[in-house]
Amino acid sequence: MSVEKMTTFQLEKHVDYIKSLDKKADFDSVVMEHLRMSGAYWGLTAMDMMHSLDDMDGDEIAAWILKCQHDCGGFGGNLGHDPHILYTLNAVQILALFDKLDVADADKIANYISGLQKDDGSFAGDEWGEIDTRFTYAAVNCLSILKRMHTINVQKATDFLVRCRNFDGGFGCTPGGESHAGQIFCCVAALAIMGALHHVDKDLLGWWLCERQVKAGGLNGRPEKLPDVCYSWWVLSSLVILDRAHWINKEKLKDFILNCQDQDRGGISDAPDDAVDVFHTFFGVAGLSLLEYPGIKSIDPAYALPVHVVDRIFFRQKC
């Protein structure tokens, strides 16, 4: 592999890789069958950032999404699977990507999500009651996109996130849980969407987050852990929301992500020379987008959708 090849972004190859996923029927695709909705969100958002969403059939995808919706309003991860807040967010995000939000019944979805809020402000993932700050993010992001924030108790939702804050300025899954970059993204982004970022100690958390960069350039999710491409999104998006992304070495991170590409077959993996998957491909492309890599569309750090999609949702003139 030539040095030059190592350092460029293989846009066409990644596009082809994502396109090929749908037809695959190998072991990995069966393992991921239950979260096809998330897979579609990762792949399609990456496609949009790479200027290739037009290659995908929006009508067909929207029809499939609606088939995954249950009577309660929530969406399952695939046909036949139970409704869950995570896949409900992903379904709404994909519809937003294709500018097809109007095909879904926003009130029905909002009713499902608001029904999952508990007395302490937290959100359950589904009827079985697992509580996690990831679900607060899913609820808040989804309802904001649908312009239905009034259906939940925003103050209580904020209070719950504040209870999950830790000595290092980070956030965990539930009160008492250790800080973890993935949860930090969820909490910081949710607070941003609720206009409550003042609950974050930007300098303290910003410093903890910038210390996620290891010597090799990649980012880890917790102290003394190995770097992984997915944290290029979790850590970097949080740093961008807090306006502290300049506290890391962006060049080194960019090289780390580029080195995790499969130069021949497309796709991005968690670490150099590991097997690629759609999850890390999305997070790699999203990370490069936040690093302003040329030729990749900008992604919004809180809503996790391309900026032009977010601006369309919130600022388009209604005729």
Partner: peptide, 29 residues
Amino acid sequence: VDATRYSFPSVLTNQMCFSSLSKGNVNAE
């Protein structure tokens, strides 16, 4: 990348209505 997009109240942070911004602005997006 706009890192200060969330640093003040706006429609994005659910602290302002869209209509208050859109008046006479032909190209709000």
